[in-house]
């Protein structure tokens, strides 16, 4: 399954891009996705312990299985600082 990943703020800066696609195995959890992202972009590894995963609709839990059909795009949300 192919899934589109979107990075924000310092993650986008560190990786040098905002979007990319990764292939994940059927049954992969959010944590599996983050591991793959870390392998692909080792520069993000230190940050990934402090992120949340989300779809454009809602936050997801890293222990949940990612359904690439229902959620073809995943956001990686670094610590937030709005306001």
């Amino acid at each position: 399954m192919t899934i589109r990943i979107t990075l924000f703020a310092m993650l986008k800066e560190e990786a040098g891009l905002a979007n990319f696609e990764i292939d994940i195995a059927e049954g992969s959890t959010g944590a599996d996705v983050l591991r793959e992202v870390g392998k692909l972009y080792p520069v993000l590894s230190d940050y990934l312990a402090y992120v949340r995963l989300a779809s454009p609709e809602k936050y997801l839990r890293t222990r949940d299985v990612i359904d690439a059909i229902a959620t073809p795009e995943l956001y990686i949300i670094p610590p937030v600082s709005g306001g």
Binding site: F8, A9, M10, Y50, V51, R52, L53, A54, Y59, R61, T62, Y75, I77, P78, P79, V80, S81, G82, G83
Partner: peptide, 27 residues
């Protein structure tokens, strides 16, 4: 605490940095 928004601060000396944030809870 929760809304996915990020701020970057630009200082008079020309330096810039992301403001340290908080990881939204609930994972």
């Amino acid at each position: 605490k929760r809304v996915p928004i990020w701020k970057r601060e630009k200082f008079c000396d020309g330096s810039e940095e992301w403001v340290q944030g908080v990881t939204p809870s609930g994972d």
